[in-house]
Design a protein around this nucleic acid. Structure first.
Lengths: 203, 203
DNA sequence: ACAAGCGTACCGACTGGTCGGTCCAATCCG
DNA sequence: CGGATTGGACCGACCAGTCGGTACGCTTGT
């Protein structure tokens, strides 16, 4: 009974992470107290500080989980077979769909990133940077192949697109008429469309 | 002498607003204490609570200033003369340039908006909404005139574009090689390009 | 017996906000 | 004219409450 009881009950650590994610997304990192988190998870502070070194550490783990997942998916889509236009379209769409599926994570990401301790902050930024670079390589590949316009720096196209993605959390609602697939398709279409060469007469 | 002396010295109220803007952008609203703000402005808490009702009120005033300015500029550009493509391009470019000119305001906006008191929050959201609607009308106008693709909801195009604009604060640096005009031109080009009709074959 | 897992009680630092009081320029009164 | 009075701008000490974090003891499985 003891074993099965422990197995049936969700591990405390997991509940803490889940509730913290929910609360951070809802009220922000600084406005959420450790008390609130442990109360929501049905434990006490002793339990939390048993599993996590600090409140900061809790946030850091959330970031790590998100970053690992996104990087894994991006790599899979970017390294697939097919023409670069199709790969970029599929990648962009997946980024949007995944972001919408984990909207709480997204809200935390762009709202609370600067609350991390300087050391942790740099680590997260660096990993985020590698992610953007992998995405940028796709754009560069298309530019060199001549299928994307190259009069706009690929770096800026990436910042342009991910700005839109990061801000999904501020306006998208699962209760609305649009599914994640809808938004993903439209966003990917807009991205691909804006990259078409010779769109406007060169000045 | 009394008059000129008072005129030479920067008004306390203005200094408080300026320093608060700087600090909120740097560390976030919740992580900035009233003590830090008044210390940076060279006054005491008594002075701050003489001019502002609360810390929240201080943030609210910052929002009000930004919203008023942006709305005024948008209206001016959108109501100008000329074809809708040129008006949208000029408007989009101005939004970017203005955002970069006041990058601190932008950082505060999307990071700390949810820290406002519920009442104030709704007011700001409503005003922000009117702003987006005015911008959306431009897109709709172009769609009805047949110069923009209409297979993507105008609403979403606006969210797409302003996502990019709001996120300028996370990556743009005035010390970098790009001027606000550079970024503005590229962003506006990307927007107009993505709106060109018959971009991809309709499925 | 002994560690792992967690609860209880508590600490010190700091927070937003308050309040009595001070300074000084402008106004009023005689 | 000049002394008294007023009132806004601001100071600085001080709340009560909250925060993240810690010390320590009790259970429970092995």
């Amino acid at each position: 009974m003891a074993r099965s009881g422990a197995a049936v009950e969700e591990p405390v650590r997991r509940r803490l992470l889940a509730e913290a994610t929910r609360l951070f997304a809802e009220r922000g990192f600084e406005s959420t107290s450790v008390q609130e988190i442990v109360a929501a998870a049905g434990v006490t502070k002793g339990a939390m500080y048993h599993y996590f070194g600090s409140k900061d550490d809790l946030l850091h783990e959330i970031y790590g989980r998100v970053l690992r997942m996104q990087m894994e998916r991006l790599t899979r889509f970017a390294d697939a077979e097919g023409p670069v236009t199709e790969r970029l379209h599929a990648t962009a769409m997946d980024v949007v769909v995944t972001t919408i599926d984990n909207l709480d994570d997204s809200k935390i990401f762009f709202r609370s990133m600067h609350q991390l301790a300087p050391e942790t902050y740099k680590t997260v930024r660096a990993e985020r940077r590698r992610y953007h670079e992998r995405f940028r390589d796709l754009v560069v590949e298309g530019q060199q192949a001549g299928v994307f316009r190259d009069d706009i720096p690929a770096e800026m196209v990436v910042d342009y697109f991910f700005g839109s993605v990061h801000h999904l959390g501020t306006w998208y609602s699962p209760d609305g008429p649009l599914t994640g697939q809808d938004v993903g398709r439209h966003f990917a279409d807009l991205l691909l469309s804006s990259l078409e060469p010779a769109g406007r007469p060169a000045r």
